[in-house]
Design a protein around this nucleic acid. Sequence first.
DNA 1: AGGCGATCCTGAGGGC
DNA 2: TGCCCTCAGGATCGCC
Length: 295
Amino acid sequence: MPELPEVERVRASLEPLVGRTVVRARLRRRDVLVVPGDPPGGFSRTRETVRPKRYTAGMLLADARIEAVLRHGKQLAIAARRGAETPILAGHLGMTGRFLLIEPGRRVAAGPHVHAEWSLDDGTRLRFEDPRRFGGLWALPSRDALRERWSVLGVDPLAVDDAALARALERGLSVSRRAIKAALLDQRVVAGVGNIYADESLWAACIAPDRLGADLAPSEHRKLAEAIRAILSRSLEAGGSTLRDYRDASGEVGSFQAQHAVYGRGGFPCPRCGATLVSGVLGQRSTVSCPQCQI
DNA sequence: AGGCGATCCTGAGGGC
DNA sequence: TGCCCTCAGGATCGCC
């Protein structure tokens, strides 16, 4: 489950693309790409029959020069230039999505879930694969379109402080009148926290996941903001958490899973107080917490 | 209007 | 050993 640390590693490992020109782009599965005119979630997710819009290789950045690889929360974007145009290819890894960079001359067998492939002017190839297809690609016409797409996202967890967290939690009833864990999973509140780091952060801040977001005290905003920053930056240093699928674009795994205090550790002792960690379901997500020291 | 349940999808892993 | 069943989970849609 790539969250911010994992997505940031993927972004960094895609940096060698900057300056390269895409000489060939190929889409193998039309339904992993959302193009202008498609329903927002992609035509395959709508119940009614929607005729797919035409897509062009240009939407996948063919003949464009890559200028930057960007990230906001868990969202990625490859920004490019083709003459006066500045096309963007945005991406989300979902649960099992991967970008894979293949050096010139290297052969890597393609599995059954390679949905898009690119060739670059130096012979490097790029693949997007995603067995479960919770991820996807979005073709955007401009940087403004990317800004608009990202404008709904909340603050960056690496920079979140108590004031920003309090503001996000108090912004409307929708965010505050629900469990703090559910609020943390909402990308409009803090962009980039997912199930693993929500549980880890709440444990580090000694806050029970089912507390209402609106009921947190100012001191708890501070502790939680500190916990989110500390855990995400430690995970980033460790290369993220590799549970099953996660790899960066060079195929490297992360090691932060060895430092998880609660995620996946239900029934085991709390590393802080020794009480048995309890796992349950909150916000439709498996949730592990310490019943004794998270209050 | 906001909150929450259902939904998409495939492979890993447990049980027998 | 091999099959079958359950479960994991981000984001969106639709219902209350």
